[in-house]
Simulated scan of single mutants.
Amino acid sequence: MAVFDVFQPLAHVTPRFTEEQLEEIVQWFDENAKPLLVINEGEPINVVTIEQLIKFLELKKYHRRSFRYPTYQELMLEVEKIKAGVTRVLTKDQLIYILDRWILMPEIKHELGLAFQIFDTENRNFLEIDEISLIVTQYGEPFSEDETREILRDANVRGDGIVYYENFIESLFSIAPELYELKTEYLFDDPDEDPSVPPEPVIEEVEEEPPPPPPPPPPPAKGKKKK
């Protein structure tokens, strides 16, 4: 088992970012890093601070379908794992390693369920055999007549012409678990179009109430009457 090196955390890890995303991270690092860390009395190396990483996360560069933004506590737990809790600075590899922890990869069962939901315009949680036949013969890469017949036979397990697609998907993957190995892509590029992704919370600005007016000055003291 390879020993984890806190200064080379990517030695046995392949980042899941795209090439474009990695280039963007490296560019941001190079623009913000400063030679603040010395290892084993060597030359100072470029690092960014944890505070800078927090500001980077606040830029919201990745949408909610592909990246789960961590809380401050979650972030600090990962920082502690690479022993950066004391120095509070991160090397380029450490930065990429930490960000990679919260990448979300598309899950084929989930994306398949979303595909069914697109055609379930009435939100019935089921489709009729005729509708599925139309989908598999006219959308994407059309299936042949024999393939369509086999799909419909497996889908119509109740024999009533109605397919509850969530049950069908579960049955499909239980029969053929090798389907989990298939790579898939996100059906919705825009997370706001994906019905399974909750919208970002809207933070309403609370208007501060004006301070109460100062109390009126006390009435002037009455002088004593002369006798």
Rank of each mutant, 00 (worst) to 15 (best):
Q52D: 02
V47A: 09
I45R: 08
L53N: 01
D146W: 14
F143I: 03
F119N: 05
M1S: 15
R64Q: 12
A221E: 14
L114C: 02
T18F: 05
K81W: 01
V197Q: 11
N167F: 08
P15Q: 10
L90E: 00
T71Y: 08
Y62H: 04
R68Q: 14
K227M: 11
W102I: 00
F188K: 04
S196Q: 09
V157Q: 14
P218M: 11
S133V: 00
R158V: 06
F7W: 13
N40G: 03
D120K: 05
D93S: 11
L187Y: 00
R124Y: 02
L187D: 00
R153P: 00
V13C: 12
P106M: 07
V38I: 14
P220M: 10
D30P: 00
E74M: 02
I98A: 05
L22F: 03
P195I: 03
Q138S: 14
E147C: 06
E207P: 02
L187Q: 00
P216M: 02
P106Y: 01
F56I: 04
G223C: 05
L172W: 01
P213H: 14
E58H: 13
F168C: 07
R153Y: 12
S133L: 08
L59A: 11
L22Y: 03
E193V: 04
V197N: 09
L59G: 08
Q27S: 13
Y97I: 01
T137P: 00
D146S: 15
E166Y: 12
P218I: 04
T18V: 06
H110R: 10
V48C: 07
K222F: 09
N32Y: 03
N125M: 13
